[in-house]
Amino acid sequence: MGHLIGKEYYLDHVIEVAKSIVLAIHKAPQITGKTKIEAEIIWGEDLEPIIEVMGPVAKVMRYIQWDYETIKKCYEKGESPVIINIGAKVSKSNLNWNCGACGHDTCKEFNAYSKEYKGGGQMGGPSCNWKVLDWAMACDWACASAWQYRVDNRIMGSVGFALHALGFLPDMDANIGLVLGPPRDMVYYNREEMHKSMSYEMDKQDMVNCVPTMFTAFPGGGTPMYKTKDDWWAPPEFMGIGYSEEAMEMYQQLLFEEVPEIVVKHADKIEARYKDKKK
């Protein structure tokens, strides 16, 4: 006889599902047949540096705050998400197709530029577009596989940024995170945890700032009004376009001070993980 309570073993099950998703990632078709793709599964306390990097980024990028609040609150409640890091090598072309999609006339020119300026991924460029397509197909297969197993999931560039900055899968130069679980409906789309941390007015203003096209009146006049209130016409509101010195200062502080400080704190431990596996 045996007896199991569902929520007591869900994490083990999600980890097993993640292993099957990794199989799907490596089984995904490729256009080139030459793109190197790797994947790893991360959960529990190994999520902490990822969450820590996302924290300061969330103050600058609102959509990252949505991801950050959800993952952080789930983890703190003991409902650890499971992250699949899907990495690819996209900064070098061994195709010799000379298609020009990367912005260079030849693959040779692309490789020379990429080598000098550390191309690929979220932290630089350019990338070989054909290899990015291969990587994208692997990500698509991963997401489809997760839904086939009825595991709530969302693929997140925000998590990919943190993974890349921290040096996960160091042989890859592009990363994205597929976040799985916990076992509730639409965790990463309804974002219950995020909404609990924000007032209605803050949430509404976020939507206006992040997806302004959803609030736009007829734009044909050249200065479109924005419907941000019930009586949006009295008086009408207009959204301006211009350079923001404040925003640029925040970006620079984030990229050159706050994130590197966190990365340095965790670098040795993360680097050791891959060195140990190569022995």
Rank of each mutant, 00 (worst) to 15 (best):
V60K: 00
T223P: 05
F168W: 14
D276Q: 15
K34P: 00
D276N: 12
W130N: 03
V263W: 06
P182L: 03
M137Q: 12
N98Q: 11
K275F: 12
E109A: 14
E193K: 03
E193P: 03
V179Q: 04
E257G: 00
M61T: 07
P126K: 09
D140K: 13
W97I: 15
K278C: 05
E38I: 01
M214H: 09
K277D: 08
G125M: 09
G177D: 10
V151H: 07
Q252K: 11
T32L: 11
V159F: 08
L180I: 06
Y10W: 15
T32K: 10
Y149D: 01
D203M: 07
A142D: 05
V259T: 06
F218Q: 00
G181M: 01
M137Y: 07
M202S: 14
Y251Q: 04
N111D: 06
K27G: 06
F215H: 03
K275L: 15
P224N: 14
G167W: 08
M207H: 08
L11W: 05
K115I: 05
V82M: 10
E245F: 08
K7S: 12
L23R: 15
Y189N: 02
Q252N: 13
T35N: 12
Q30G: 07
K204S: 09
A174E: 02
D105T: 14
F168H: 15
H104S: 10
A88G: 15
V208F: 15
P224S: 13
F110M: 14
Y75S: 12
A136L: 02
K196L: 12
D134P: 01
H104G: 04
L163Y: 08
Y200G: 01
M207T: 05
K275S: 10
E109Y: 02
V208Q: 07
C210S: 13
K36T: 11
R184F: 11
D12P: 00
I262Y: 03
E193S: 08
M202Y: 01
I71E: 04
M250T: 00
L163G: 03
V53A: 12
Y113E: 09
A142T: 04
E249G: 09
T70H: 04
Y9K: 11
P81K: 07
V22C: 14
K92N: 06
C102K: 02
G2Y: 14
K278L: 12
V57N: 04
K7N: 11
P212A: 09
W232L: 01
I155V: 11
H195C: 01
D134I: 07
M54I: 07
K227G: 05
Q205M: 14
G119R: 05
G221E: 05
V132S: 01
A138H: 05
E261Y: 03
L178Q: 10
H3P: 00
E45D: 15
I21F: 12
V82R: 07
D152L: 00
G240Q: 09
W66P: 01
G2K: 14
K89D: 09
A272P: 00
K7H: 11
V263Y: 07
Y149G: 02
V263T: 06
M207L: 08
P235I: 02
R184P: 00
N153S: 15
K278Y: 03
S197Q: 13
G33H: 12
R184W: 01
E40L: 10
